[in-house]
Amino acid sequence: MKQQQEATHEYMKKLCDIFLCLGRQGLSIQGDREGTKSDNRGNFLEFCHLFAKYDSSFESELNQKISYTSPKIQNELIETTATVMKEEISKRIHKSSMFSIIIDEARCFKEEQMSIVLHYSENLHPQENLIGFVNCSKARDSTSLAAAITDVQNYLHVKGMVMVAQSYDGASVMSSKHNGVQAKIKEQHPQAIYIHCMGHRANLVITDACSHI
């Protein structure tokens, strides 16, 4: 039993290494069809079977009835990895003692997703980390969006820390100094100056310039 536990432990470590490698390279994890008859079962399973080709112990575990490679297990690996990464980011921000936030929205099929990026300094070197996406399809008013940002701060345990800046696009719901998201965040973080995202400003300039050609 002890030998089996050690073998399973080593097998799981290799599964996690494959998973983390795909994440670092920005590659998708799952495939559309992961059955044995599929020509492409997705990057995760294809890498697993590549490993098995050169590692007999890994192949033996992979061919077991319970191989820990199902879509449900893959989703659990994604959630676990995300939790560990967010905890690490939280620790780094606490060491920095201050941070800024960068928010943007994008439509994904029928959903409106809000991306959340935290910017902080680590040994005087600027760092940016994408925390994740928040589904804001149901309500996109300034109160709801500001509440979603606060929820993320609570999750990372950084709400009580100093936020020195906030960067969004120029839409009134975000930029209004009276009732926009930036105004509501300033109620919690008076030091958080609002900066109109440079990327969005450049896009406006280019669009306007092209319209006069």
Rank of each mutant, 00 (worst) to 15 (best):
I131K: 00
Q153G: 10
D151T: 10
N135G: 06
I131T: 01
V152D: 06
N135D: 15
N129L: 13
A139M: 08
C136I: 15
H157E: 12
L156S: 02
A147E: 07
Q127N: 13
G160T: 15
N135L: 05
R140S: 13
I149E: 02
V164C: 12
K138E: 15
A165L: 12
N135K: 03
S137P: 03
V158S: 00
D141T: 11
Y155M: 11
V134I: 14
V134N: 04
G160H: 14
R140V: 09
A146C: 06
E128Q: 15
E128T: 15
A148G: 01
R140M: 12
V134C: 11
V134P: 01
T150A: 06
S137M: 05
C136V: 15
Q153N: 08
Y155K: 12
S142C: 03
F133S: 02
M163E: 06
A165F: 13
L145G: 00
A165I: 14
D141F: 05
M161E: 10
G160W: 12
K138D: 14
L156G: 00
M163L: 09
G132I: 06
T150Q: 08
I149D: 01
I131Y: 02
V158C: 02
N154Y: 07
V158Q: 00
N135Y: 07
V162D: 10
S144A: 11
L145K: 00
K138H: 12
T150M: 04
H157L: 08
K138R: 14
A147Y: 03
D151P: 05
A148I: 02
G160I: 13
G132R: 01
Q153M: 09
V158Y: 00
Q127K: 14
K159Q: 14
G160M: 14
L130W: 14
Q153D: 06
K159R: 12
A148K: 03
N135E: 07
T143H: 09
S142A: 13
I131P: 00
T143S: 09
H157D: 12
S137A: 06
Q153K: 06
A147M: 07
C136F: 09
K138M: 13
K159N: 13
L156Q: 01
D151C: 09
M163G: 05
I131N: 00
Y155N: 11
V162E: 10
Q166Y: 02
H157K: 12
M163H: 08
N129Q: 15
S137C: 04
G160F: 12
V152R: 02
Q153F: 08
A146E: 00
A165M: 13
M163I: 08
C136T: 14
E128R: 14
V162K: 12
N129W: 14
K159V: 11
T143E: 11
S144M: 02
S142Q: 01
S137E: 07
K138L: 13
S144C: 02
N135S: 06
D151A: 11
L156C: 05
V158L: 03
R140E: 07
A165K: 09
N129K: 15
